[in-house]
Simulated scan of single mutants.
Amino acid sequence: IIAALGVLQFGFFHLFVNTALEDISASRGAVIFALIPILTMLIAAMAGRDTLNAIKLFAAILSFIGVALAIGEKAFTEGNASTGWTGELLFFMAVCCGATYNAFASRVMQNRSVVLMTIVGMSAGTMAIFPFAYAEGLGSAIRGYDTGDWLWILYLAGPAAAFSLFLFNWGLQQLSPSQAAIYVPIAPIMAAAFGALILDEHLSSLFLLGLACAVSGPIILNWRRTARQSKP
């Protein structure tokens, strides 16, 4: 089961995202990416893996609105418009993969080694998309890589992929699918913030309002969880 979920999350999720980014901007993809909490809640509820109520749905929608406010100005400018809907469709397919992983992996992670589950999932996902990479000319491409390229690959494979997936899996082990997925929309907002800090990119005038909305989602869900746990 973990191998199959790994194919979705670490395999086809990244395949769809990277292919979509050839057609649409990262900012537009990030807005679609923010749908993960909503889809996670719906899939988990339909599969009997989690409960769905108005407060959870409100928190998820609020987080999505936060991303739309924070980076929507950049995402939907005329220069970032695509010629068709291929990129948006591929990104939505990626979101479906991620949401399915969130909905089902939480229970599978219980009482199991998170490190082992991460290794199994990443290995399965890598093997699943290897044929696509090979077909695109992986063998000839890597022969032209220099030291800097390999250092970037090591960073993407290590801290950016393996360690972040381990932390997310650990969160799925501790929380319900809805409680874990609600943090996902914060990622594109932080990416925009670091882009402004490191690359001197422009931030939307509504960035702070969007950040406040995105952070409010996890706060609402955690406040309700803390309130229930504190009851005698």
Rank of each mutant, 00 (worst) to 15 (best):
G66C: 01
L69W: 09
I71R: 05
G72L: 05
A75L: 11
F76S: 03
G79H: 11
N80K: 09
G87E: 07
L90N: 10
F92R: 09
A94V: 11
C96L: 15
A99L: 03
T100H: 03
T100D: 07
A103C: 07
F104V: 08
A105E: 06
R107G: 05
Q110F: 06
L116T: 13
I119P: 00
I119N: 07
I119A: 12
M122H: 08
M122G: 01
S123L: 13
S123I: 08
S123D: 02
S123K: 01
A124Y: 05
T126Y: 10
F130M: 14
F132E: 04
F132M: 12
A133I: 06
E136R: 15
R143E: 15
R143Y: 06
G148W: 07
W150G: 00
W150T: 00
W152R: 12
L156C: 09
A160K: 04
A160R: 04
A161P: 00
S164Q: 11
F168V: 09
W170L: 13
W170V: 00
Q173S: 15
Q174H: 15
S178I: 00
Q179D: 13
A181W: 00
P185N: 10
P188W: 07
I189E: 02
I189G: 02
I189Y: 01
I189V: 13
M190Y: 15
A191Y: 01
A192F: 10
A193V: 03
A196Q: 01
I198M: 08
E201K: 14
H202G: 03
H202D: 12
S204E: 04
